[in-house]
């Protein structure tokens, strides 16, 4: 029996006046680390705010960790951590005080909130600086404080909205490590919204791609990267006539061969392994490399975004 989804949306929509910002969205997000991708204005942040109950959906319904987002937002917020996209802090308080306050607001008794605040601030790498007012922190430190306040109450689900924004490469690396650790080793489910594909690729094992408020692609990252055609990059060597014969045999079997940089040939078509091996043997060419093409997340994203609007699963 498969685990219940952490997020389940049923024809969820959100309108701002006449403008539809989201949906209708039907979506099930499994436990684990899920990337939420989409170009600017795709509805990622609106979706996250809907999931937290910060924004009331116009129609449809949804549950997060089994709690209805419209009817039980307080119960779900006790179990969800939120890392907002915007720079936000409580003025004139230190990181230790801010994180303690956020823990208490999430329902932790004060002694527990104080202890947890120091634990998570240690975890995100804020040492003595935790006693300084957050207003004087660098952008990287503020992002770490935002992560600390999001996990102080030990949430089951962490909603991260552009967590590596404004970070230098070292801080970004550290942030990604922390997020990956929380998801992989601490068992927290993570929804990671970003337009930085490489970050999502490093942290997530599932992705949901939004465009214009609708889901246009979703699934396991490994499946999406495999690609539909199952293309193969091959490298062959032999006399020119043999190579020509090889290409002719491939063409006859319905396999397209496109020259790539560095002498490789990208083959696409049915039953590639058998057809290519037979064509090489019959034409007398040496098959020196035969490697399935693994699309990057960027390929998947660009392909999904460029395709005409035909929502995948999400309505």
């Amino acid at each position: 029996m498969s685990a219940p989804p952490v997020i389940a949306l049923d024809r969820l929509t959100k309108d701002y006046g006449q403008r539809r910002a989201l949906g209708p969205l039907t979506l099930e997000v499994p436990a684990g680390r899920v990337g939420l991708l989409g170009p600017n204005g795709a509805g990622k942040s609106t979706l996250i705010k809907c999931l937290l109950g910060l924004v009331r959906p116009t129609s449809g319904r949804g549950t997060v960790l089994g709690f209805d987002i419209a009817r039980r937002p307080l119960a779900l917020r006790e179990r969800v951590g939120y890392f907002p996209e915007v720079d936000c802090h409580v003025p004139d308080v230190s990181a230790a005080e801010l994180v303690t306050l956020m823990g208490e607001l999430a329902g932790l008794p004060r002694p527990d909130a104080i202890r947890r605040a120091h634990e998570v601030l240690d975890y995100v790498g804020l040492a003595e600086e935790r006693y300084r007012p957050v207003g004087g922190y660098s952008a990287g430190m503020r992002q770490r404080v935002k992560l600390a306040q999001a996990i102080v109450h030990d949430p089951e689900l962490l909603l991260l909205d552009e967590p590596t924004n404004a970070l230098d490469p070292v801080s970004r690396e550290r942030m990604l490590e922390l997020i990956r650790d929380l998801g992989e080793r601490r068992g927290m489910s993570i929804v990671y919204s970003s337009h930085l594909l490489s970050d999502v690729e490093r942290v997530c094992d599932h992705v949901v791609i939004l465009r214009g408020g609708a889901v246009i692609a979703q699934g396991r990252l490994a499946d999406l990267r495999r690609g539909e055609g199952g293309a193969v990059d091959a490298r062959v060597a032999g006399p020119a006539e043999a190579l020509a014969a090889f290409r002719a045999r491939l063409a006859a079997a319905g396999v397209a061969a496109d020259d790539q940089q560095g002498g490789a040939v990208r083959l696409t078509g049915p039953d590639l392994s058998r057809v290519t091996l037979e064509a090489a043997r019959e034409a007398g060419v040496q098959l020196r490399a035969f490697r399935p093409v693994r699309a990057t997340l960027e390929d998947v994203f660009m392909e999904a975004v460029a395709a005409p609007a035909a929502p995948a699963g999400g309505g």
């Binding site: 937290l52 939120y82 907002p84 720079d87 936000c88 802090h89 003025p91 207003g135």
Partner: peptide
């Protein structure tokens, strides 16, 4: 300071 976003989350 947008602290409201933190509070109301």
């Amino acid at each position: 300071s947008r602290a409201l976003t933190l509070y109301l989350a």
